[in-house]
């Protein structure tokens, strides 16, 4: 018998004892967060871009406040909601591309070999994106305040704004995850991005709906749920506590969240098509 040189390994515990859902989610989530923060360079662009647009359009479109009936006299107040939604859309791409990469590389298969539960996998994977969304929202809020945006709904409104924008980020992240799970490639996820941006611009993001001149555009904006996400965020800045706007915003955000999370869940199950 050959001389045993390798060190003695401690035997692993019983493989049948699988980690709990929470523990699994945290483990996968930790990885997802670590990934995001180790690719800071990739974080910067999605975070800065909406700010650049905010800075430019906040000034370039400020003549719009002179349109009779415009709700504020500072266009930046009106526009602040926009970066939150844009940031959330970028988050959806980050989340989707990261998940797609795991599918393409086979990392998901590796995880599928463990007793990992589908829910834990999904929530954990979205964890990094969620954190990214929260960080972005705080940055946007601070930038808004620093550039003189004042909150009609006060500090409480700012908190609600953060909460809503995190819910929105989570909803969009789930959507990105869903696309990744369905199509399994990063390109497919990236490909949806223009479409998301289209929905943003074809909404009441730049002008209040009642001031949109072209009726067909106004109709599109009215049927576009993104309008209500924006209007809810915006109401906290320019109106105060507008219960209807908030209800619509939270409603549509939750609806998107529930639907895409639910579909992701079943897509994840078929992706982890282990027997």
């Amino acid at each position: 018998m050959a001389v045993e040189t390798a060190i003695d390994l401690p035997r692993a515990g019983h493989p049948s004892r699988s980690a709990g859902l929470v523990e699994q989610t945290l483990a996968v989530g930790r990885r997802s967060v670590v990934r995001v923060f180790r690719q800071r360079a990739l974080m910067i662009f999605p975070m800065i871009f909406p700010l650049i647009l905010f800075a430019i359009n906040g000034s370039a479109l400020s003549p719009a406040t002179r349109i009779p009936g415009f709700p504020t006299d500072n266009y930046r107040d009106f526009l602040l909601a926009m970066p939150f939604i844009q940031g959330a859309m970028f988050v959806s791409i980050t989340a989707g591309v990261d998940l797609a990469r795991d599918i393409e590389s086979g990392f998901l298969n590796r995880l599928a070999m463990t007793p990992l539960r589908g829910e834990a996998m999904l929530l954990g994977q979205l964890g990094g994106a969620l954190l990214l969304g929260a960080v972005q929202a705080i940055v946007y809020l601070l930038v808004g305040v620093a550039t003189g945006v004042s909150f009609a709904s006060g500090v409480g409104g700012a908190v609600v704004l953060l909460v809503l924008s995190i819910v929105i980020s989570f909803a969009f992240a789930s959507l990105g995850g869903l696309l990744a799970l369905r199509f399994g490639t990063g390109e497919a996820v990236q490909g949806i991005f223009p479409l998301l941006f289209v929905t943003l611009f074809l909404s009441s993001s730049s002008l209040p709906r009642n001031l949109i001149k072209a009726t067909w555009f106004r109709d599109i904006a009215t049927y576009n749920p993104v309008s209500y996400l924006i209007e809810a965020l915006r109401s906290l800045v320019i109106t105060g506590w507008d219960v209807q706007a908030l209800a619509l915003g939270f409603g549509f955000a939750s609806l998107l969240l529930v639907i895409s999370l639910g579909l992701s869940q079943s897509a994840m199950r078929s992706r982890l098509a282990r027997t």
Binding site: L61, A64, I67, P68, L207
Partner: peptide
């Protein structure tokens, strides 16, 4: 988005 959505701006 610009020509359709923002046309009211020409009323400034």
């Amino acid at each position: 988005a610009f020509a359709g959505g923002l046309s009211r701006i020409s009323d400034v």
